[in-house]
């Protein structure tokens, strides 16, 4: 299981890009930390989620 924003999800084996797309995130509006390290945008397609990973997806919305 992969912990994503505090919730255990059955996402091991998926790429980060695939997970974001399936979960309805716009990749140009997020920042993703994996085990406390930022994942560079260019690595979303090659980053494979693993059992035990702790993923934080921060979604930005407009206004300021």
């Amino acid at each position: 299981m992969v912990k994503i924003n505090g919730k255990e999800e059955n996402a091991a084996g998926k790429t980060l890009a695939a997970y974001l797309s399936e979960a309805g995130y716009d990749a140009s509006r997020v920042a993703v930390e994996r085990n406390e390290s930022i994942v560079a945008k260019k690595d979303y397609g090659s980053t494979v989620l693993r059992d035990g990973d702790n993923i934080e997806i921060v979604r930005f919305v407009g206004g300021g």
Binding site: R29, F60, G62
Partner: peptide, 11 residues
């Protein structure tokens, strides 16, 4: 203001 710019700066 814009979400994309926020994300780009933070990243």
């Amino acid at each position: 203001d814009k979400a994309e710019n926020k994300a780009a700066l933070v990243n």
